[in-house]
Design a protein around this nucleic acid. Structure first.
Length: 927
DNA sequence: TGTTGGACTTGCCGTTATTCTA
DNA sequence: TAGAATAACGGCAAGTCCAACA
C-alpha cells in the first residue's frame, strides 16, 4: 500500500530530515514569580462578589443522619444545615486601606504528609501470574532486518541521532528565567550557535552516541549484578552533560499571548466509515520476527544491519534515519510490507488474522489480560472476584484558630466556615495565584456567597488576610521546631489511624490502596489559565461517596459518626474502591484506586507495554500507509488523518481531545489551531502551543514536503483560531488507527517511541566501565525520552543560588590553583612560597607535593564544572514521568541484568514495587 | 453520529525523607 | 552535626479513550 509513497524524492526529503533536531521548549517560569511575592501581597484586594448565601456544603461535619448503615445500597442522607458556633458580627467600616502583609514565606499547603512506609506486599504471587509464557527465543535472524530495523528505530534516533545540537533558548518572560529547548531538523548544525540563548547551550549529542555497536552477548547470562561494586553516587558528569538544552515553563501570563482560542470546533465529521472501508489493517512485518527476535542478535550485528540498510556514509550513524527514510529504506521491505497492506484493503479481520502469525504470540501472551472495556455484567469485564477494604479516611474537621483578618483595617469576626475559607486564601498569599485576577475573582465569588450579601466584607481589595497568614507561618514554624521525637510520635499516630485504610484484599491478596484519603477542602488550583481556579472545593462528606466492594465483604464503617455513604456498589467490572463527584467540575469524578504496585495496576501496565511492542510489528506498514495518504490521497479527511498520525508518530504529540469552555485552553494534535503551526518554507513547521497541564510545546521540525504542503493546505483560508484539522477528532483518528492495528490508539505511539528510544539508546551507548558510567548512559537515554515527550519541570527556586555557589567554589579553586602554580615556580627556583592571604608564610612544600595538590584541585574543578553543566542541563527536564509511565520496565531490568547494574540504581523503592511484574524478564529481552 | 458519562492513565508540583558536604 | 542538596512520595489536576445514550 505504501510502496508508491516511497518515491526517490521522498527519500531525499527524508534524508534531510536527519539534520540536527532541536527541541524547543519554553520556560513558563511560573515559579520565578515567587520573587514577587512581596509585591503580590501588597495587592490582595479584589472585587466585590455576590450575595446568595450558600453554605451548607462547606460546613463542618455535624452528623445528623442515622448511624452507620448495614444495607447494600443506601440513598444519600440529607443533612440539615449546621449551626455555626459563631455569629458573624458586622465589623465597622473604615476607609483606610488594608495593611499589606509583609512576611514572605514558603508556600504553604495543607500538608498531608502521611509517610506511609509502605510495607511491601508480596508481589511474588502477582509477578508469578504475570510471568510471560516466555516464547522460546527464536534463532537470531541476522538477516532481513533491514526493513524493520529502521522502523523500529526510536524517534530520538531520528531526531537526536545526528549530531543534533541541542539549543537552549532562554526567553525571559514575566521576569521568569524562561528558556526553551528546541529540537529541530535543520541541516546547518552550525546555526545552533546563532540561536544560542543567554545561557548555555549544549550539544545534544554526546560522545556516547558513538559507541554504536557492542555486543552484550557475553553479558547476557550473567545474573543481576547485585554484587557489582557500587560506586557510590551516580556521577552525572560525563557524556550526558552535553545534551540538550534548557527550558522553562510558560509563564502564566504568557498564555494569552499565544492566542489560544477557545473557539470550539464545529466538527464537520465525515463518517469514519469512509476511511474504514478503504484502509485496512496494516499488516505487521511479514517476517516471523518475534518479539524477541532481536534479542538474540548481537548488537554489533544490529548495528551493521541497519547501516547496511541505510548505506549511509560511515559516520552518519543510524540514529539519523528519519521516519520516511525508514519507510523507504529498504525497497524490498517496503514492497513486502506494502503488499499485505494492500491485500488487507478490504476488511480488517482477515489481515489481522494473517498478521497474527506474528502477533499470535502477542495475543497469546496477553491472553491473561481481559479487555477492560466489556459491558458490565457480561462477565468478561470482570476485574476481581472478591474485594474487601475499609473505605476511605476523611480529613479532620476544621479547627477554628480565631485569628481575625482585617477589613478596612478593622478586625472582622468570621464564622468557622467563613474563617476556614479565608484561611485557604490567606495561606496562598505568597503564591503566584495572587497574580491571577481570575483566581481572586473566583475565590471571592464563592466566599461572598458564604458571607452573605449583607456582610461587612464587600470587596476583596479591602481585605487584609495578613494576620491569618502570619498565624499560619507561625504554625508552620512551630511544626518545624518540633523535636524529632515529637515528629516521630505524630507520624506514628497518623500511621496508626490510617493503617486500616491503606490496604485492600483483592481476590485474597493484600494490596495497597493508592489514595485512601479524601481530598481536603481547599481552593481549586487549576493549571495554566484555568477558568475555575480559586473556586472553593467543598468538603467531601460520606454522603458524597460511593463505595465499591465485594458482595460478601462487610461494608466499610462510615468513619464520621451519624453519617453514611451515598451508595454501596458491588461492581467487579471496575477497579475503583470509591468515588465522589468532583466538587469543581460536576461532570467529573474522583476515584480511589489501588496503588500502582497492585496486581491490577501491574497487569494493565503490562498490557500497555505489550500493545506498544505490538506496534513495533505494524509500524512499518503504518508509516507507509500514512505517507501514501498524505502524499496522494485526495480525500481531505484521510489526508488530515495521515498528517495527524505522522505528527503523533514523529513528534510524540498527544491525541488532543476536545475541551469544554470551562477548562484551560490547551491543545493536542487533533485540536491544534492554525496559529499553533507555522509553516516556514521550504519544509519546516514551527509548533507553538500549550499542551497538557498548560506546558508549552515549542518545536521546529523539518517535515516531508508533502506534509508541509498539506499543512499549508489545511491552513488556507482559516483564521488563526480555527482548527487546523477541521475534519478530525480523536475518535475518528483512533477509529482509523484501530483499523491498522488492533487496539491501537494515539497514545500508544508515545509509549512505543519512548520505549524504543530507550532500548535503542541503551543498546547503542552502553559501553563497559563502572556502574556509575552505565547509570549515566541510562540517564542520558532517559533524558532523551523526556525531551521527546516534552516532560518539563519548573526550575527549582534555589537553582540560581545553587549555580552561584558552584561558581563561587570553582572560582575559589581556580584562585588556589593559580597560587599553587606561583608557588611551584618559586619553589623550583629555590624561593620560599608566597605568603598566604592572611599574610602568614605558607608551609614549604616540595614540588612533588605541590603538583599532587594541583592535580587534586584540578580534578575537583573538573568535577564541579561537570556538575554545573548537568545541573543546568536537567534543570527543566523531568526524568521521572517517562520512567513511570512510558518506559517498559523490562527494557531497564534486562539491561541491568546484561550489564550488571543493580536495578536499585535505576528504580527506587516505589518503582521496584510498581514494576514487580517485570523483574523476572530474560536478560536478552529487547523491546 | 455526536455527545456525554465513566473509568482509567498521565503529569507536575509541593512536602517530606534521605543523603551529602563542610 | 547542621544545613544544603537531592530523591522519594503523595496529591490532585488534566489528560485519553471507550461505550452508552440521545
Amino acid at each position: 500500500m505504501a510502496v508508491e509513497a516511497c518515491t526517490p524524492n521522498l527519500m531525499e526529503d527524508m534524508e534531510d530530515d536527519e539534520g540536527p533536531v532541536i527541541f524547543k521548549r519554553s520556560n513558563p517560569a511560573s515559579k520565578q514569580n515567587q520573587a514577587n511575592s512581596e509585591k503580590k501581597k501588597l495587592s490582595l484586594q479584589k472585587h466585590v462578589g455576590q450575595s446568595a448565601v450558600h453554605t451548607s456544603d462547606v460546613r463542618p461535619a455535624n452528623g445528623e443522619s442515622s448511624s452507620a448503615q448495614k444495607g447494600r445500597i443506601q440513598p444519600s442522607a440529607k443533612t440539615p444545615p449546621v449551626k455555626s458556633p459563631l455569629s458573624s458580627p458586622k465589623a465597622s467600616n473604615s476607609s483606610a486601606k488594608a495593611s499589606p502583609i509583609t512576611s514572605p514565606g514558603a508556600n504553604s499547603k495543607p500538608s498531608a504528609s502521611a509517610t506511609s512506609t509502605a510495607k511491601q506486599q508480596n508481589h511474588h504471587k502477582s509477578s508469578a501470574a504475570f510471568i510471560e509464557p516466555k516464547p522460546s527465543v527464536p534463532a537470531a535472524k541476522a538477516n532481513s532486518n533491514s526493513e524493520s530495523s529502521d522502523d523500529e528505530k526510536p524517534l530520538s534516533a531520528r531526531t537526536f541521532g545526528c549530531s543534533s545540537k541541542g539549543k537552549s533558548n532562554h526567553a525571559n518572560k514575566e521576569g521568569g528565567d524562561s528558556c526553551s529547548i528546541r529540537r529541530r531538523v535543520i541541516e546547518e548544525s552550525e546555526d545552533s550557535e546563532d540561536e544560542k540563548p543567554l545561557s548555555r547551550r549544549f550539544t545534544s549529542k554526546s560522545s556516547l552516541g558513538e559507541s554504536t555497536s557492542k555486543s552484550y552477548d557475553s553479558d547476557e547470562k550473567k545474573p543481576l549484578a547485585a554484587k557489582v561494586q557500587q560506586n557510590g553516587s551516580v556521577s552525572r558528569d560525563g557524556p550526558m552533560n552535553k545534551s540538550a538544552s534548557l527550558s522553562n515553563k510558560r509563564p502564566p501570563g504568557e498564555v494569552k499571548s499565544l492566542n489560544q482560542s477557545s473557539v470550539k470546533k464545529p466538527k464537520l465529521s465525515s463518517p469514519i466509515t469512509s476511511i474504514s472501508n478503504k484502509q485496512a489493517a496494516v499488516k505487521p512485518e511479514p517476517e516471523p520476527k518475534a518479539e524477541d527476535d532481536d534479542d538474540n542478535i548481537p548488537l554489533s550485528q544490529r548495528g551493521k544491519k541497519s547501516q547496511a540498510a541505510t548505506s549511509k556514509p560511515k559516520d552518519e550513524d543510524d540514529d539519523n534515519v528519519p521516519i520516511a527514510q525508514r519507510i523507504k529504506k529498504s525497497p524490498a521491505s517496503v514492497s513486502k510490507s506494502s503488499a499485505p497492506v494492500k491485500k488487507a484493503s478490504t476488511v480488517v479481520s482477515p489481515s489481522l488474522k494473517k498478521v497474527n502469525k506474528n502477533s499470535k504470540k502477542v495475543i497469546k501472551k496477553t491472553a491473561y489480560t481481559k479487555s477492560s472495556k466489556v459491558p458490565p455484567g457480561s462477565g468478561e469485564g470482570q476485574k476481581w472476584t472478591t474485594l474487601v477494604h475499609n473505605g476511605v479516611i476523611f480529613p479532620p474537621p476544621y479547627n477554628p484558630h480565631g485569628v481575625k483578618m482585617l477589613y478596612k483595617r478593622q478586625p472582622i469576626t468570621l464564622t468557622p466556615e467563613q474563617e476556614e475559607v479565608a484561611t485557604m486564601f490567606a495561606v496562598m498569599l505568597d503564591t503566584d495565584y495572587m497574580n491571577k485576577p481570575r483566581f481572586k475573582e473566583n475565590f471571592f465569588s464563592d466566599w461572598k456567597k458564604m458571607l452573605g450579601k449583607n456582610h461587612t466584607i464587600q470587596n476583596l481589595e479591602d481585605c487584609d488576610f495578613g494576620p491569618i497568614y502570619e498565624w499560619h507561618q507561625q504554625e508552620k514554624e512551630k511544626k518545624k521546631q518540633m523535636t524529632t521525637e515529637e515528629k516521630k510520635a505524630l507520624k506514628e499516630d497518623k500511621l496508626q489511624q490510617e493503617e486500616k485504610y491503606m490496604w485492600a484484599i483483592v481476590d485474597g491478596v493484600k494490596e495497597k490502596v493508592g489514595n485512601f484519603r479524601v481530598e481536603p477542602p481547599g481552593l481549586f488550583r487549576g493549571r495554566g489559565e484555568h477558568p475555575k481556579m480559586g473556586k472553593l472545593k467543598k468538603r467531601i462528606r460520606p454522603r458524597d461517596i460511593t463505595i465499591n466492594i465485594g458482595k460478601d465483604a462487610p461494608i466499610p464503617e462510615c468513619p464520621i459518626p451519624g453519617e453514611r455513604w451515598k451508595e454501596v456498589r458491588n461492581d467487579n467490572t471496575v477497579t475503583w474502591l470509591a468515588f465522589w463527584i468532583d466538587p469543581i467540575n460536576q461532570k467529573e469524578f474522583k476515584y480511589v484506586f489501588l496503588a500502582a504496585s497492585s496486581t491490577l495496576k501491574g497487569q494493565s501496565d503490562k498490557e500497555k507495554y505489550e500493545k506498544a511492542r505490538l506496534l513495533k510489528d505494524y509500524i512499518h506498514g503504518i508509516r507507509a500507509a500514512y505517507t501514501k495518504d498524505f502524499t496522494n490521497n485526495k480525500d481531505p479527511m484521510k489526508k488530515q488523518i495521515a498528517v495527524a498520525t505522522y505528527l503523533i508518530d514523529k513528534l510524540a504529540l498527544r491525541a488532543g481531545n476536545e475541551k469544554d469552555d470551562d477548562e484551560a485552553d490547551t491543545v493536542g494534535c487533533c485540536t491544534l489551531k492554525v496559529e499553533n503551526v507555522e509553516p516556514v518554507p521550504p519544509n519546516i513547521l514551527k509548533f507553538d502551543f500549550l499542551g497538557k497541564d498548560s506546558i508549552r510545546y515549542q518545536n521546529e521540525v523539518q517535515v516531508e514536503p508533502a506534509v508541509f504542503k498539506a499543512i499549508q493546505q489545511f491552513r488556507s483560508g482559516k483564521e488563526g483560531s480555527e482548527d487546523l484539522f477541521d475534519r478530525l477528532d480523536t475518535s475518528k483518528l483512533n477509529a482509523h488507527l484501530k483499523e491498522l492495528m488492533p487496539g491501537l490508539t494515539a497514545k500508544v505511539f508515545r509509549t512505543y517511541n519512548a520505549s524504543i528510544t530507550l532500548d535503542d539508546m541503551l543498546s547503542k551507548e552502553t559501553k563497559g566501565g563502572e556502574v556509575a558510567e552505565k547509570v549515566v548512559v541510562y540517564q542520558h537515554a532517559n533524558k532523551e525520552v523526556a525531551i521527546i515527550c516534552n516532560h518539563q519541570r519548573t526550575v527549582s527556586k534555589s537553582h540560581s543560588a545553587q549555580m552561584s555557589r558552584l561558581n563561587e567554589k570553582i572560582d575559589e579553586l581556580k584562585t588556589a590553583m593559580e597560587e599553587l602554580k606561583t608557588d611551584l615556580s618559586r619553589v623550583k627556583k629555590g624561593k620560599p612560597p608566597s605568603k598566604g592571604a592572611d599574610g602568614k608564610p605558607k608551609r614549604n612544600l616540595n614540588p612533588e607535593a605541590l603538583e599532587r595538590k594541583m592535580a587534586q584541585i584540578n580534578a575537583k574543578i573538573e568535577k564541579m564544572e561537570r556538575d554545573k553543566e548537568t545541573k543546568e542541563d536537567l534543570k527543566t527536564v523531568a526524568l521521572g514521568t517517562s520512567k513511570i509511565n512510558y518506559l517498559d520496565p523490562r527494557i531497564t531490568v534486562a539491561w541491568c541484568k546484561r550489564h550488571e547494574v543493580p536495578i536499585e540504581k535505576i528504580f527506587n523503592k516505589s518503582l521496584l514495587a510498581k514494576f514487580a511484574w517485570s523483574m523476572d524478564v530474560d536478560p536478552s529481552f529487547r523491546f
